[in-house]
Design a protein around this nucleic acid. Structure first.
Lengths: 211, 211
DNA sequence: TAGATTGTTAATCGATTAACAATC
DNA sequence: TAGATTGTTAATCGATTAACAATC
């Protein structure tokens, strides 16, 4: 039986769905459900069984003909395919409402990441403890950022500081930036930026909702 | 010259890009740039000139052969195509760090939306003023939500309350929900949900960054 | 005028859906 | 065994890219 080798590259739409399947499956796991079929997963996700199978087909090991997928095996395989054993080091830059929301609510440890540091420049924020981490001053001491050897960053500073801060991140070796700033960022090749402007989410939602 | 009628339906990937073009163009406008070419926009967005033209082609009125697109005309046409004259009424449910970040930083008014209300259930949050709006108690008075006749909602409550709160929103007539909760929501047909779990953004970023 | 650049059709590419044999 | 359901290939559909005539 031909098996798929784990390093086959996943299509981008597939990666997006897999990360969401993972959350769904973990919910199933918590609810004590041991096995699911592609059509059950499709029902919850909101796509087709065929697409689910096509997505899972790329994974190393998947289901059993006739009886479906074991939830525990599947979550493990998705984690592996998405590279969640990597222990990526995350930093948050800008610790206003949004930055601290991310720090406090995103379960990094559960998905192979570590919140390595939090930065800001405002005197009334620097020095505070957020989720057990002391907020450091980016402006004064660039080496502090570099010393953390961060892989990924969430950029939550006010728009005017966006590019400048992104440059610092790149210099510190960050390879991926989640941009919550309204400004577009210029980064060198090899660094990926995902734009996550909240207003766009609302615009898209408003379009979808009146369709 | 064949012109495109404004109600032609846009492809979903196109809608997503258009909402981001809009932010870019507004930045250009602020910088005093009056005209841009498809290749300049593509350069900033990070796609091809051909794709940009294909996206803009669907709009009612677009550019001028030989000399590019007028930034002001284009922003106006994108706004029109995305339906941003609609004055959608937005409510935020759950006013913790994330909910209040959205309330304070998302420029609803600039994009044809109104922040109509903010809700929570925690006694220490209800009654506070956030962006000039008094946080109301959802649990005690469901009619308060209904009275606002909300169109769109951002769901920022803790996971256990997700479905229950979504039900309230649907009952109040909400047609689109931005789900920041980790749980999947069940909603009737006709209501659209966009899942915006932050951890998924990090997972996707980590995958993209190590690609 | 010559150069630039859109509007728009056609070609290509990739992703989704359909189908069904294999088999638990 | 019969029913269910995957693994996997093929067919379809849609989106992106290429190309170029029209024209500012």
């Amino acid at each position: 039986m031909p098996k798929n080798n784990g390093n086959s590259d996943l299509a981008w739409p597939s990666v997006n769905r897999l990360s969401e399947y993972l959350l769904i499956l973990e919910q199933f796991e918590k609810d004590g459900i041991g096995t699911i079929s592609s059509s059950e997963l499709a029902e919850v996700y909101g796509n087709t069984a065929s697409q689910v199978r096509q997505d899972l087909f790329r994974l190393e090991e998947t289901g059993r003909v006739g009886s479906g997928y074991r939830v525990d095996v599947l979550t493990h395989m998705i984690r592996k395919a998405l590279g969640l054993e990597r222990k990526s080091r995350v930093v948050i830059v800008g610790c206003g409402k949004l930055g601290s929301a991310i720090a406090e609510h995103v379960p990094f440890e559960e998905y192979g990441m570590v919140l390595a540091g939090i930065f800001d420049i405002a005197p009334d924020i620097v020095g505070r403890k957020v989720r057990g981490i002391t907020v450091q001053d980016v402006s004064r001491d660039t080496s502090a950022l570099k010393d953390l050897s961060p892989d990924l960053a969430a950029l939550c500073v006010p728009p005017p500081a966006g590019q400048e801060t992104a440059d610092l991140l790149v210099e510190a070796g960050v390879k991926g930036i989640l941009n919550y700033t309204r400004k577009r960022l210029r980064v060198p090749r090899g660094v990926s930026v995902q734009d996550r402007q909240m207003i766009c989410a609302f615009i898209q939602l408003s379009f979808a909702a009146t369709k």
